[in-house]
Structures are given as C-alpha cells and as structure tokens.
Design a protein around this nucleic acid. Structure first.
Lengths: 232, 232
DNA sequence: GACTACCTAGAGTATATACTCTAATAATAC
DNA sequence: GTATTATTAGAGTATATACTCTAGGTAGTC
C-alpha cells in the first residue's frame, strides 16, 4: 500500500479511537513508523488529511443513500438505509464528534459538509415520500416530512454523542457497533405514529430487535436511574 | 464583584463566544486585566472553572424543569418549559459544543453530567405523562414515552450544533437566540402525531410561531438546496 | 503598629504541536 | 550508467498553553 493511503488509513483509525483532537500529526507518523517529514511530504497539513477522509465518508454515504426511482421502496430497503447509515457513522465516527471544530478550521470542509447535509436531508425526505407511496407510512405534507427528516437526521448524527456522554461511565469503555445501532430503535420510534395499519406490527417487530440492552459496563450504583430510559 | 465571580462570568462569556477549545486561561486573565497567577489563585485549573460553570447550568435547568405535582399541566406550562430550556441552552451554549472533550477531561463532570441527563430525561418523560393527563396528548406506553423523551432530548441538545454546522455558512456569523429557539419548532414536530383533537390546532398555531425563517446570511448560490428543509 | 489572612502581579517553565528544512536514498526514464 | 524525479529521515523551530513560583500588596483585627 502507498504511504499516502497508509497515512489516511492510520489517521482514520487513530481519530476514531482517540478523537481528532487527541491525535497529532506526530502521533500518526509514529504509529506508521515514518518520519513527520514524510507525512508532510504527502499532505500539506492536518486539515488536508481530514478533508480527504471526509471525501471518502461523503462518497460512502452518497452511495448508500442512492434511492432507486424505478421501483417502490420496501421495508427491506428502509432497514438497509438505516443499517448502512449507521455503518458509515461508525466507520467515520470521529467526524461527527469534533464536527464544529473541524468545520471551523477548514473553509472547503465547511462548504462541502453543508451541501452534504442538505443532500442527506433530501434523501431522508425522499425515502419518507417513497415509503408513503409504498403504503408503509401515511402520506404527510411536504412541510411535515421536511421537519421530520430533520429530526431523523438529528437523532442519527447525535446518537453516538449521546451514548458517549450520557451512557458510558468510564473513559476507557469504548462503544461497539451494536450499541451504536440501537440508534435505529430511536429512529424507528419517530416513525411509529405514521405507520399504516398494514405495516405497523412488522415495523414494531423490527424495531424491537434494536432495543437497547442494559449495558453491563454501567456502574451498579447508578444503574437504576441511568437505565430508566431503556427499561420501561 | 469578587474576582472569583468575575473569572466565572468572563470565562462563560468567552467560552460561549469562541468555544472552550479556543479560550485559554491566559485569555481569560487578559480579558479581565488580571494576572494568570491571580486566576490560578482562585481556581486550581481550567477544569475547575468549567466544572463550576456546569454547576450553575445544572442548577438553572433543574430549576426550570421542576414539575408541579399538585396541579395538571397546561399548554402554557409546556411552552414555558421549552422556552426556558432553550434559554438555558443559549446561556451556556459552549457546554454542549465541546461536551465530549469536557467530560473526557474531568471525572466529576462526567459523572454529574450523566446524572443530569438522566434527570432531564425523567423530567421530559414526566411532562409528557402530565400532558396526557391534561388531555393535550394521547396517553402512551411507558416504553414509547421514554423513547420519545430521549428523541426530544437529542433534538434539543443538538439543535444548536446543527445550526452552526449545516446552517451558518460563514465562520463569523454568530447565531442568535431567535434562531436557536426555532428548535422549538422541531420539538413540537415530534409531538404532532400525539396531539389530541382538542388541542391539535392550538399547538400547531404555537408551532408556527417558531417556524424557521429563510436566513438572510445564507449565501445566495446555495439558498435553493440549502433552504429546502425549511421552505416547503 | 503589628500580625494575619487574603489577594495580586508577572516573569518564568515544561510540554506539546503543527510544521519546515536539508540531505540522503530509492525508483524510473532514457 | 546517468539524470531526474519521487520518496524518506530526522533534527529542528516557532508558537501556544496550562500552570508555577516568588514577592509583594491590602484589609481587617487586636
């Protein structure tokens, strides 16, 4: 593998594990056992590394959220979208963690991310539209669908942060993909009232699969209050 | 005013304006025209300053979210809760911006914040319960109410981040309290399907007041795509 | 006035971090 | 082979940042 690609890969790995803020270019170089000079031969600065990683992330999500216009959507499609988006979120999880600071430091990234958000919101809205066409949910006004899509986006992109701040008690306890995907439970919660009678039970059953489990890592003395949101 | 209080006040102000990450203890001292030594006489370290500010924030929100148990809730109560919570969010807006990093650096804060979150989720859930008692929304199962409360929390605490990342195009453009409160529109969107016939129209009318306006600061060439989520 | 507790100044330090510079080495083209 | 280009090492730098240390001032009390 080319050094350049190795740098991108290691950066992503380290960023995800420790957070962008805690990973310096020297760390990345050391992790690859190359010199800082070498790293800076391939990338002008740290922002450039982050930007390239964002482009990969963007490409992945755009690929996942490509909506077929030649056929109706199915429940399987919906679940695929959800699973995929959370997979993407997981693979590039450092990104949403330090989003504001990352955008503050890079004009290109700020611009691109904004357009990316808009595309995602459109895609979510379009998915709702096609789910209504397919009789999975009741059709809604454009206005309501847009506002709902935005709420879905907020839940999806911030579920991870919630887990890390409100949930994990120890600094060292790392999240798992399984825990992250419990966010799907929350997203499906948003859909419940709009489900048609024909699909309601099937979706509720799917949702049940993602119901948060009582995390064993949680400190015992806090588990009663802490677990309230996922035990009732 | 005591130097100690001045430090807390200036710190909050600077953190809110520039983000905690961009404000050093030396900045705070310089802003107050006192010496770093003086600042460190009053606070052992930066974390202590942040922790004390958090305690104030916590106290404020706990005060706002005190739910009267001797009488039913009204629509006015609900709107008061929403307005108050967003006011609190605004006054301490630096906090949720760098939340993960702040918690990473302070064990006490991590613990306290977690308990704070649990209290807030309980309060939201209790508000929904009492709104059902009052006939404003249809009663829901405990499980659904908890999951909904969590979604409300996610929307509330991350609305600001959404505005800053997806919305404001220029680094220099600062948010206003008015824009922040458009988050109330999003929260009320979550409630819509649960509203009783008796209250539906009244709540929808209230919601309309918070509908996002087309921001004039947005760049023109992007306004079509960008505005989609709030123009339909 | 003198004792004490509190408060303040400001120079200074250890460490970190993004990034540079020069020289050397490998790969490729001709 | 030789010239050229691409790659790499690694010491080094400018700047920032959280925090320390010493010395001195101020306010209240007896």
């Amino acid at each position: 593998m080319k050094t350049r690609d190795k740098i991108l890969l290691s950066s992503l790995e380290l960023f995800n594990e420790r957070g962008e803020r805690n990973v310096t270019t020297n760390h990345i170089a050391a992790h690859l056992a190359i010199s800082p000079g070498n790293l800076y031969y391939h990338f002008r600065n740290k922002s450039d590394i982050i930007y390239e990683i964002f482009l990969e992330y963007e490409k992945l999500v755009d690929y996942y959220l490509d909506i077929p216009e030649d056929r109706p959507l199915t429940l399987d499609d919906m679940m695929f979208y959800l699973e995929s988006v959370f997979d993407g979120l997981w693979s590039y999880r450092f990104f949403h963690r330090d989003l504001e600071h990352l955008l503050d430091g890079d004009r290109r990234l700020r611009q691109d991310y904004r357009e990316f958000t808009d595309r995602c919101l459109d895609a979510i809205s379009r998915i709702f539209e096609k789910m209504a066409d397919a009789g999975i949910i009741e059709p809604q006004s454009d206005e309501l669908r847009s506002a709902m899509s935005l709420n879905v986006w907020l839940v999806i992109t911030n579920w991870m942060a919630f887990l890390k701040t409100a949930h994990a008690c120890e600094e060292s306890v790392n999240l798992t993909l399984t825990e992250l995907k419990q966010g799907i439970y929350q997203v499906l919660t948003l859909e419940i009232p709009y489900l048609t009678a024909a699909y309601r039970e099937r979706v509720l059953a799917l949702r049940e699969k993602y119901r948060p489990q009582l995390p064993e890592t949680r400190e015992v003395d806090l588990s009663v209050g802490a677990a309230r949101w996922n035990t009732v």
